[in-house]
Each structure stands twice: as structure tokens, then as C-alpha cells.
Design a protein around this nucleic acid. Structure first.
Length: 140
RNA sequence: ACUACAAGCCGGGUUAUCGCUUUUUUGUUUUGCAAAAAGGAGGAAAGUCCGGACAGCAUAGGGUAAUGUACCGGUGAACAGCCGGCUGCCAGCAAUGGCAAGAGAGAGUGCCACAGAAAAUUACGGCCUUUGUGCAAACAAAGGUUACGGUGAAAACGUGAGGUAAGAGCUCACGGCGUUGGUUGGUAACAACCGGGGCGGGUAAACCUUGCAUGCUGAAAUGCCACGUAAACUAUCGGUAAGAGCGACCCGCUCAUGUUUGCAGCAAUGCAAUGCGAUAGAGGGUAGGCAGAUUGAGUCUUAGCAGUAAUGCUUUGAACAGAUAAAUGAUAGCCCACGACAGAAUCCGGCUUACAGGCUUGUAGUAUUU
RNA sequence: UGACCCAUGGUGUAAUGGUAACACUACUGAUUUUGGUUCAGUCAUUUAAGGUUCGAAUCCUUAUGGGUCAA
């Protein structure tokens, strides 16, 4: 009921909103790399307060892009690529009754092209998928 | 028609699919979720350079300090903005255009490299007079001297005449400058004219003086709710100490007090030490929600009136975002000029800076046609 | 969102409004058979544009870039 698995939705429910959660990710989370992108993530078994699902946060540093327009553009590109490609990961995580929080950071110097972003986010998702599967075997 | 300059305006459109956010309506037992409809970044949203609104705290009064500001009038909530004028400078034959932190250097202090006698009222060289020595030239002493002195960014009102031992605005004529009193015009800055007394560089974006203005802190302000732990916080009362308050300082005013113990001493007094409890409340920290918060000194627009103008008054019509790790995107197609600078974060009025391309108006030049 | 500071050779620092100085690096030359050492020399639009002043690294205004602080 919470999420229809096959719709390309990225609403408030599926975004990281709390400052506390984000700090926790940066403190305790693990890293996954894909050249200009970097992702921090945490993975827990779902509880009552912590419903099963996938949550995303996006960040671009002011050091690399001075203007707010450029930062907004990169964030939008990442969000769009995530929205179109995240479904398999989300399905896996919900099936395993786990909750996963991911924070993607862009660390490049130049504005990326859209196909590049799509490709890199896909590789990120594959790696995360792999990690999620591994964790399942460990925990169970 | 093209080119250049100036001013003003605009700042891609459209169709389909998939998404984001706010509001409303409907469905659902409420939250939530789903569906539909409507709205969804700028001319600079930027820089944070000025001015306010709003909120909290503080506040008897006067002065000083600090900070800002500086021709006059208008405009406006307010301003260092805008509009009009005055003065000065620059360009131009002129008409006119552009620029100005545009109060005071005759209140005081400082500084003015190098050069120059001297950088500010003095000295020096030189000139002149008298006396002495000497045939004379010259030298020495006492005095006079705003003339002259290769420089420099800047040199002691300029020119002419008189005057003198030599000279000097010392006096006179013409001209210049600034000061003061009056008359006329102007709301005023100021201008014109008349008179008095004067002629002592520059620098105040050096200190400063004068006038005027300013309480401080900023939405991460502030108010409320939830969660939640523990005597570190606050209030009241009493005690103790002697000071405390008026957000920098002073005056002045207000409030409060003179303890206890030890040592010295006959005592007055001096020296040293001591330097908190009770009651009530809920603070700090952590981290969520709601309000603040999107209708306001509003913006654009039609017409009229007032005004040189900025602008004001009345009036017609139109829309006017509200996120909170933070919304406008992606894909495909078409059109054109092939899309620059750039993304709201409490809200307004200005200023400054960035900007592809297009449109309108005006001025100048060139070419063609009538 | 608000408050504030800095910018000088390639690098790190100086400099009362009056000739932009010092150290290291780099380059050139001399010394040396060669290299090193040593000595001599070269390298600046004082971040940019305006203004005040006779004269600006310095004073003022604006811009650009960099940095610090305040939940």
C-alpha cells in the first residue's frame, strides 16, 4: 500500500528530510564510488517507526559550482536519473523488509551531460543492489 | 535602407508523455493515500551598498564620546535615492552638453619628498642709511627693508604711476579675490547693484570644527505546543559583603548598607579572615510541529486632474510563488531571432554590477529614390 | 541569512602619502676541465576600474577573487 512498485515516483516520502538522518549517514554510513559521483548509504532491518523503503538525498558543494543555478541543475539531473532507474533496488529492499537511506554527492568540476549522469547513476544503483544482496546473506 | 550613439521596453513559443510543489474539491473511518482542477522564480531574484516595515530586549533627564552625513528647494514611510534649481570645473565659436564626497583652511594642530634663500609670516643672500677704520676700493658695528634671489605642483593680489636713503597696497587709477552691512529679485541656495574695512599658499577622501541624524540586536529575531532529563538556571524571601543601576564615559539622580570571627589596643580604631540558605518555578541541552509567512507605505494598467519634473489624488481593469536538505525538470517533435546573465528564502523603496538577441523613439553620418 | 577581514616578483613577508625592500626559487653571466659552492645581474600595470591629491601600494568609492565568524 505504501508504494506502488512500478511507478516512477519520487515524492516527499522517498526523500531524505531530517537533518538527524543525514548526519547519521555521514557518520556511520558506507561509501560507494562512481567517478564524479559518490554515495553514502545505511541499511537497517525495518521496524515500526522505520518503515521499509528507499530514501534519497542529493547534494552539490558550493566549492565546485559558485552559482546556485548550476548546483540546482546537477541536483535535478541526479534526481531525474534516480527516479527513472531505482525501481529494481526499491523492490529488492522492500521484499527484504529493510530500509535504506542513500545520499548522493557530486564531486566534479564541470557541468555533466545528462546521458553521463544516467549512466553513472545506473552503475551506482548496481553497486548498491549488490551490497543490499550481500547484507541479506550476512544478516540472515 | 545601413552604421554609430543615447533613452525606454521585451528577456523564447508550442504539442505529447513521465515527474516535483502549493491550494481547493471529491473519495476514503482521521493522519495518510488516490483522482480532478487551478497556481508555481527575475530584470536583475545577484552584490549586500543605503533606507525603512516588522519583532525582541533596553529606556526619568542633560552633556561628552562613537558612527554616519553635508549647496538649496521639492518628492516620499524613509534615504547617501529620484526630480528641479544654484555654484564651480571641463568640452564647444555659440546654442548647449557632461561631471562634482559641493559646509568650514580668517578657530586650532599637523604635513607639503626632491629642488629652492624660504613651503608660511621668520631667517639668509642682496639693497640702503648712519658710525668707525681707510686716499680709495673695501671691511666691521648699529639699524631700515612684504622690491630682487637659476627652484618647484604651488612663491607672498596683477599692471601702471606716485613715493622713498633703499623699499613696501605705503598712496592713487584700472582690474581680480574673498569678508561684512544694505537695497532689489528669488521660498531658498544665490544673483545684480551700492557702501565699509581688507589682500594672511595648498591639504579636511590628515586630525579636527560646525550643523543635522542615530538606543541595541536581526526571521538562525520572536511566540506557542509536543518530547524530555535533572539542581548546573530563574524568581521571591531572609542573611552576608559593600556597593549597584541608568548597555561606552561623566554629571546628576535613584536604591541599599554599615555584619560576624580572630589579632593588636584601655578605648576609639586598625589589620586579617569568612563570603549563603529556604520556598516556588522550570531553564540549559536535544530535536520535531504550528505561527511569524506571504495582501503590502504594494505592483502593473485605463482615463482625468494638480505639478516644469520626480510624484500625488480620483478612477477602469488585471493578475500577484511560498519551498524548509528546500518545488519549475526530463525525453521526443515543430517554429523562430537557435535562447545571454542568471534561481525567491521575512517583506518593501532605491543604488550598483552581469547580460545572447530583438523591438520602439530620438540625434548624427552615408547611399539611393521621389 | 547576517557580520567581518585580506589581496604586493613564481613562493613567503616588508614598506610615515614622496626611488616598491628582503629571503628563497627560476633564468643569464663570471669563477671551474665539468657540476656544486660563491659572486654579479634579470624577473612587479602593488587584484581591476574610477576619484581625492603636486604626487597613491598606502586615503575614498565600486567591482572581482579568496578567507573567517555566528545555529
Amino acid at each position: 500500500m505504501a508504494t506502488k512498485p512500478n511507478t516512477y515516483i519520487l515524492g516527499k516520502q522517498q526523500r531524505l528530510k531530517s537533518r538527524k538522518a543525514i548526519d547519521a549517514i555521514f557518520k556511520n554510513g558506507q561509501k560507494v564510488n562512481a567517478s564524479p559521483f559518490k554515495a553514502f548509504y545505511t541499511l537497517q532491518v525495518a521496524e515500526q517507526s522505520n518503515k521499509p523503503g528507499l530514501k534519497l538525498g542529493v547534494g552539490v558543494s558550493k566549492r565546485f559550482f559558485k552559482h546556485a543555478v548550476d548546483r540546482n541543475r546537477v541536483k535535478r539531473q541526479i534526481r531525474e536519473a534516480w527516479r527513472l532507474q531505482k525501481n529494481t533496488l526499491q523492490q529488492l529492499v522492500t521484499q527484504q523488509n529493510q530500509s535504506m537511506q542513500v545520499f548522493v554527492i557530486f564531486t566534479g568540476n564541470e557541468l555533466p551531460i545528462t546521458p553521463l549522469v544516467q549512466e553513472k547513476v545506473a552503475t551506482l544503483l548496481n553497486k548498491l543492489l549488490h551490497e543490499a544482496g550481500k547484507n541479506l546473506t550476512k544478516t540472515t
